[in-house]
Simulated scan of single mutants.
Amino acid sequence: MKQQFQLELEDVKRIAAAAEAHAAAKGWAVSIAIVDAGGHLLWLQRMDGAAPISAQIAPAKAHTAALGRRESKVYEDMINGGRVSFLSAPGIAATLEGGVPIVVDGQHLGAVGVSGVKSSEDAEIAKAGIAAL
């Protein structure tokens, strides 16, 4: 039987704080979501000034990255490349860049989703949070 790491609350807080600090340093108002490996929401915060819709998009990006075990940008690229049938894939909540899986020692522990600025900047924030682990 394989042992699986799990995110603990302190890990989630560390990721969230680092992501928030990165966004704040750049002057970006975003929503930050963190999910476990099953895509279940562990953390959601909407920074002052972030658009209300970002609090819906960030968890969807995280969910997609967690279940797919890859960045949500992969799905965006597939669709933009002409594979539009992927829009009907079950469990894919958001096919926009900004969802990044959390991988530790080859184990997928969940994902971070960010929404509120350019998609590439959303991903940058998510990666800054994950780097705090």
Rank of each mutant, 00 (worst) to 15 (best):
A65R: 02
T95C: 06
V12W: 04
P101I: 01
S88Y: 13
A89G: 00
V112K: 01
I53V: 15
A25P: 07
L42M: 15
V117L: 05
G116C: 02
L41A: 06
G129R: 00
A55D: 12
I53P: 11
A58C: 00
D77V: 00
S115L: 03
V103L: 10
H40P: 00
A55M: 13
K118H: 15
G49S: 09
I92D: 10
Y75S: 06
G110M: 01
E71C: 06
A111P: 04
A55Y: 09
S54F: 04
L44S: 05
A60S: 05
A37L: 08
L41V: 05
S54V: 07
V103C: 08
Q4S: 12
D36W: 13
S119T: 14
G39D: 08
F86V: 01
K2Y: 13
A17S: 07
I79L: 14
V30C: 11
I15M: 13
W43S: 07
V30W: 11
G116K: 02
G113Q: 03
A29K: 10
A94V: 10
R83P: 09
A18Q: 06
H108W: 14
V104F: 04
S115W: 00
A126R: 04
H22I: 05
A94M: 15
D11I: 00
A93V: 00
T64N: 11
E97T: 12
E97K: 13
G129T: 04
K26G: 10
E76D: 12
A37S: 10
G38M: 01
D77S: 00
L109Y: 07
S85I: 11
L87M: 12
M1A: 06
G39A: 07
W28P: 08
A89M: 12
Q45D: 09
V117H: 09
N80S: 13
V84W: 12
A18Y: 08
G82T: 13
E20R: 14
G110I: 04
A16Y: 09
G82P: 08
